[in-house]
Amino acid sequence: MDYRAEPATLAHDGSWPGFLCACAEALNASEPVPRVVDADAPVGLFESRIAVARDDGRAAALWDRLTIKAGAPAMRIVLEAFLSERPDARADTASVLRRLRREGAAALRDLADPIVLSVDKAATRARREAERTTGIARFSELADGSWYAPLEPGCDVLPLVADHFAARFRPMRFALHDLRRGRAVLHEPGRPWLLTDGFSLKRVEPDEDAGPGAIDSAMLASDELRIRDLWRRYFAATAIEGRLNPGLQAAHIPKKYWKLLTEMRRG
């Protein structure tokens, strides 16, 4: 294809393999390199946009090629930057791949390059959000013995935290549910975890008033509410009265996360 005629862009479907396919197309293009954009983004007046089809085989081939060249740690940063969902992170990540292909992992150390710095920051953001998620996910035991944790992470962290929870809760059958994106990691003991789109917890009777992630009490294991209450007791007792500092507390755990934290809500 010849993109030189006008400022061309390559659109992907928002999925990780789709994004990699658009990147592969961009890597094949000659200067000026077309920008990689999300298909949802509004089209500019003089933009000529080409949609790149998702092809998982092509995506995997590019991923493997780049991993050989740049190494797994560098590619982890690329994945984190993609999952950060920062406005320019994906376009910047796409253009950093060009340097990665040429220079290997060293390219990511050139933080004086604003594009590299932007990717580094986006990746850091997703990594922090994933780290936070490993701490603040709250599981509830359901009546059938499985476990359910609703999440509302700022970045698309499920692929980054699934290994952690699967290793830690190996004997548990659980679902980690990203309410905002409607996706879930499903884990069965003895099997690798699975990422599913369009997940929702079956409700016994729909309750309009229940907050996000709320579970009908009929679905909970019989001990669940008692143990939640014990945890709230513990949480209240562990703060030192002489040092109360709600500002510091909110700085560590912004209030937007509170509604899914057992210790910060009732029920």
Partner: peptide, 8 residues
């Protein structure tokens, strides 16, 4: 895993 009212 959490932060208590004293910020710890």
């Amino acid at each position: 895993h959490s932060w208590a009212a004293d910020g710890r």
